[in-house]
Amino acid sequence: MSIETTAGAETPALRTFRAARRRRRRLPSVAVLLSIAYLACIVVAGVFGPLLVPHANVQSLTDSLQGMSSQHWLGTDDLGRDIFERVVLGARTALYGPLLIALGAFVIGCVLGLTAGYIGGIPGGIIMRWVDLMYALPGVLVAIVAIGVLGGGYWVAVAVIMILSAPYDTRLVRAVTIEQKGRPYVEAARTLGLSRSRVMFRHLLPNVLPLAVSQAFLSFAFALINLSALSFLGLGSTPGSPDWGTMLAESQASLLDNPLLAIGPALAIIFAAVSVNILGDYVFDRLSTKEGRND
């Protein structure tokens, strides 16, 4: 196995080469396009779900446990409900909670991370102790226990996971802020006599954003996975509701006899998480292009 020399001296030649590579990568790949398409479906289903499949929750015992057919694409469950239609309904909890968590953690992370990184001092110290503590904790475990004790429910789970996600954003934003604040362009802004908030939000924030935004996509994927895991354990969405995690949990009893009950929701979750990560990578590539960098 030979070892490729991949970097080395930063000659202008190399820089041009890299820049061109980055430009080329900006064209979305098939995977990215598929991800966008799938996520668009989730958004539409999440927002308009009940309008698209108005009869999803109608029970009909005569139709129970049917196989795949043109009428029921993924068959029906033991109560005779169309599984595909219930998967469509499940997009709602897969969309709203993770979106809220990603946004919340992003905002908290940017504000606290910039503060801890740029201002530091006592507020920075407090923020970082909090982050360190949260980092050392096994997050999912805390979520399980907290939700179990607080008495469950989807929105409780959303709140708990948001609090558990924010430290990751905070730590990232702080690290980038500290790395950027020693750069001459920030010092030059200080030397000009600009106010602290202007330096933070006009100069630092735009340079921190690419990483923070890609972290938000990561948060979304992890929130999606953790929320459905909690529902799967019976600690998130109420049993019986059309949530992908809950549907999977309820399919367990007769899994080997009726695998159709599980396949739809399982693939829906996996593809959603994968799509979000693929899109996150792509967005990061786009945001950190040559125009935004100094090299």
Binding site: S251, I270, A273
Partner: peptide, 14 residues
């Protein structure tokens, strides 16, 4: 990396 273990687990069982 994005595949939740419980969903994968269920597919594996099937």
């Amino acid at each position: 990396v994005s595949a939740p273990s419980f969903a994968v687990g269920i597919l594996l069982i099937i």
